[in-house]
Structures are given as structure tokens and as C-alpha cells.
């Protein structure tokens, strides 16, 4: 298929025509990659230095938008929430996901049933997840009222109405939705481990938890890193869950950066501010992705 064509055409044209079907076949990919992903990102970064309001305008104000952004209490709370949510979400989804996968890997019965149960929340939209958990965490209908009606009348559990812990209420719903996928990725990793390693560990009399901790988990490094990147880039995007559960409330206690961006772009009609905030999100993602990409692809030659 690498038919090079007759070599009578001029060098530049020849270069372009070489492997022409491949290039024609890749046009959609090239367009998406260059125009939307690269072009769109650069466009947003570029316009974040302007004071665009309702429509994008080319009047540059330097770093003004960023100064305003970092002075806004709402943005600071958003960042703080994202940090708390992100940290706990990462730790818990990795730990719970791995534990569930390890349990599922014990040659149990009904494995398919359990897997379906753990994975079905992933098929639901964030909006549905958010609404259901809003009911369950609602103090008048949900867990609090049930426990109170059982006799413990001073029991208080209203994470969505207490601005100090509201982000943990969102975390509960997020973990419910996301750990199934982590479990599946981990299970695939566990299944990829050679059975002989287990046999060797059993022959040597190593307890199971030690085998997991010191042999299996280090062997699953690649799976862990990939999962980490998938979860992390999902965390930065979190938006609809918050909108469905609390819409940022109480007050501004559960704001997240993605919501800040949408509100400024499409409601407050302050495009420049929205672009600056989304550029900060881009930088956050870059901090996660670049080291991973470097570790994953930088060391060896791409093939």
C-alpha cells in the first residue's frame, strides 16, 4: 500500500502526494485535532487577555482578567472545592475500586451480577445521579428523617445544606457513579497478572494481603497511572453533578471552576473572565497530563 507514485512530479508536490489515501482518510482527524482542539484552545487563551464582554473583542488588557479572577472569592472557593473534591475523589475511587476488584477476583460466584450492579451507575447521567442523591441526602425525606423516625431524634446528616461539608455530599454521589469504572479497569489489570505469580506467592507462604501490597500493586503500575489520569481529568471537568445536586449552594459553598466558566461565558456575559478561568483549568489539566505523557511516551520511542 505504500505505493509512492511515479517520481516525475516536483519534489514538494511529490511529498504531498505520497501516501495520498492515508492523508485523505485522515482529513477529519486532522481537522478536529488542528482546528478544534489546537485552534480552539489557542483562541481561548488568546482572548483571555482581552476585556471581551458580550462578544469577543480584540482590546487587550494584559493580565487584568487573571488578577480579577484570583481576587474573586467565588473563584477561590471553586479552586478550594476542586482541590478537596479532587483529592478525596482520587484516593477513594482508587482504594474502593481496587478493593472491589480484588474481591471480584476471588473466583466468586455471580461475578457478572456484581459487576453489573457496580457498573450501572456509570451509565446514568450526572444529572440523574445528582437528583437521586439530593433526595437521599435531603434532611426531610432521606437518611436523616429515617434515622430520626427510628428514635434518634438529634441525628443530623444534611451535607447538602451545610456549607462546611457540602462538597462531601457531592463526593458521595460522585464516588457512587465513578467507582464502577475504576473497578472494571482494575479488574482488567488483575486479570492480566500471571497466575504463576499467585502460585509462587502461595508456595512461599506469603499472606494474601502482602502479595497484593508488595507484588501485585507494583506490577499494576501502568493500570494505576492510566486510571489516575482518567479520573483526574474527569474531576477537573465536574459540572453537571454540582448543578443537579446543589447548583453551587448553599450560597457559593459548592462552586466549582467549570461552573464558574459557564456562568461567566453564557450568563454573566463576561467572556474575558470566562476565558481566563478556562485557561486556568487548562493549566490544571496540563499539570496532570504532561508528566504522565512524558512518563508514558517520552522514555521510549513511539512505535
Amino acid at each position: 500500500m505504500t505505493y509512492d507514485g511515479p517520481r516525475r512530479t516536483p519534489a514538494g508536490l511529490n511529498q504531498l502526494l505520497r501516501n495520498l489515501n492515508a492523508k485523505i482518510a485522515s482529513i477529519p482527524m486532522i481537522l478536529t485535532a488542528v482546528v478544534i482542539f489546537l485552534g480552539g484552545t489557542l483562541w481561548t487563551v488568546f482572548y483571555s487577555f482581552t476585556n471581551s464582554k458580550l462578544l469577543p473583542r480584540l482590546s487587550f488588557v494584559g493580565l487584568d482578567q487573571y488578577e480579577r479572577l484570583w481576587a474573586a472569592p467565588r473563584w477561590l472557593i471553586s479552586i478550594q472545592n476542586l482541590a478537596v473534591y479532587g483529592l478525596f475523589s482520587l484516593i477513594f475511587s482508587l482504594v474502593i475500586g481496587f478493593l472491589l476488584a480484588a474481591l471480584m477476583d476471588q473466583k466468586i460466584r455471580f461475578e457478572n451480577t456484581f459487576r453489573t450492579i457496580f457498573l450501572y451507575p456509570f451509565a446514568l447521567s450526572f444529572i440523574v445521579t445528582g437528583l437521586v442523591w439530593q433526595w437521599i441526602l435531603n434532611p426531610e425525606f432521606g437518611i436523616q428523617s429515617v434515622v430520626r423516625s427510628l428514635g434518634w431524634s438529634s441525628f443530623t446528616f444534611d451535607p447538602l445544606y451545610n456549607s462546611d461539608i457540602v462538597i462531601y455530599g457531592i463526593l458521595i454521589a460522585a464516588l457512587w457513579q465513578g467507582t464502577g469504572l475504576v473497578m472494571c479497569l482494575m479488574l482488567a489489570g488483575l486479570r492480566g497478572i500471571d497466575e504463576d505469580i499467585w502460585k509462587a506467592a502461595r508456595v512461599d507462604g506469603i499472606p494474601m494481603w502482602k502479595t497484593y501490597l508488595f507484588i501485585i500493586i507494583p506490577m499494576m503500575r501502568a493500570v494505576f497511572i492510566t486510571t489516575l489520569v482518567i479520573i483526574a481529568s474527569g474531576i477537573v471537568k465536574v459540572y453537571d453533578l454540582v448543578v443537579a445536586q446543589t447548583s453551587g449552594g448553599p450560597g457559593i459553598a459548592s462552586e466549582v471552576p467549570a461552573k464558574y466558566v459557564y456562568d461567566y461565558m453564557f450568563q454573566a456575559q463576561n467572556l474575558g473572565q470566562g476565558f481566563a478561568a478556562s485557561t486556568m483549568m487548562l493549566i490544571t489539566v496540563a499539570i496532570i497530563i504532561v508528566p504522565w505523557a512524558y512518563l508514558e511516551f517520552g522514555g521510549r520511542k513511539r512505535g
Binding site: A33, T44, A258, M281
Partner: peptide, 24 residues
Amino acid sequence: WRFKGADLFFTILIVGAFIPYQVM
């Protein structure tokens, strides 16, 4: 049908998957 630059476009595409939608 690997052609020159294919890897570059593919890398942009994959990195693009991680960029928050809000940016684009």
C-alpha cells in the same frame, strides 16, 4: 498507512480528549 506527521496529529487528538470542554 502511516504518513509523515500522523503521529503528531494523533497526539494532539489524544491530548485534546483531556482538555476540559469549557476551554473549547
